[in-house]
Simulated scan of single mutants.
Amino acid sequence: MLAVIRYTVPESQSQDFVKQGHAILDLLATQPGYQRGRLARSVDEPNLWALVSEWEGAGFYRRALSAARMAMYPLMILMVNEPGAYEDVHVRDGA
């Protein structure tokens, strides 16, 4: 299961955002079902960021969000309000 949370971050806040993003990923990584995560920045729109994580299933992700709520709270004003949980339909690894 893929989780994507997008953020619109003013350039003046990007350094603090990166620190907070690292802390959130560190916290999520301690939760059951976590597989991997990354913080990414759009190459076309530098104010657009994504916190992307992979989970064993949606239940694990939702429980992890509850555990990380306080760490994520300061960034909520920057979140893009859209669905962010995606179920794998097809996965193809590289060679």
Rank of each mutant, 00 (worst) to 15 (best):
R92L: 15
Y86M: 13
L48G: 00
D26A: 08
M70K: 10
E87D: 11
L27Q: 14
Y73F: 13
M79W: 03
R6K: 04
R6P: 01
G84H: 06
D93C: 09
D26C: 02
E54T: 00
Y61E: 15
M1Y: 13
I77N: 13
G21S: 12
Y34P: 02
T8Y: 04
L2A: 00
V18M: 11
A40D: 07
Y86D: 08
L25V: 01
L27C: 03
P46A: 00
P46L: 03
Y7E: 07
L51G: 11
L51K: 02
N81Y: 05
G94Y: 10
R38H: 05
Y61K: 07
R41K: 13
E54R: 00
R63T: 10
S66L: 08
F17I: 01
A68F: 09
I24N: 07
L28N: 04
Q15R: 15
V43Y: 00
K19W: 03
I77C: 10
R38T: 07
Q35C: 03
L28K: 03
S14Q: 14
A3K: 02
L75M: 15
G21Q: 05
L65W: 03
K19R: 13
F60E: 06
W49T: 05
D88Y: 03
G94Q: 11
R6L: 01
M70S: 12
L2G: 02
Q31H: 01
G37E: 10
L39S: 04
R62H: 11
G33I: 05
D16F: 07
G37R: 07
Q31K: 02
L75W: 08
S66Y: 07
A50S: 15
L25A: 03
Q13R: 15
A85E: 13
P46G: 02
V43M: 02
F17S: 03
R63M: 11
V80K: 10
R6G: 01
R92P: 05
A23N: 12
L51Q: 05
R62D: 14
G33W: 06
W49A: 02
P46C: 06
A71P: 04
Q35I: 05
L75N: 15
Y86T: 08
S42P: 02
A64H: 11
E11I: 14
V9Y: 12
A64L: 09
L25W: 01
E82I: 06
I77Y: 10
R69S: 14
L27H: 14
P74L: 15
V52Q: 13
A67K: 12
S14A: 15
E45S: 11
V52S: 05
L39H: 10
R62M: 13
V18G: 09
D93W: 07
Y73T: 10
R38Q: 10
I24A: 14
V52I: 11
L75Y: 09
S66K: 11
E45H: 06
E82Y: 06
W55N: 01
D16I: 05
P10C: 06
H90R: 08
G84C: 09
S42K: 04
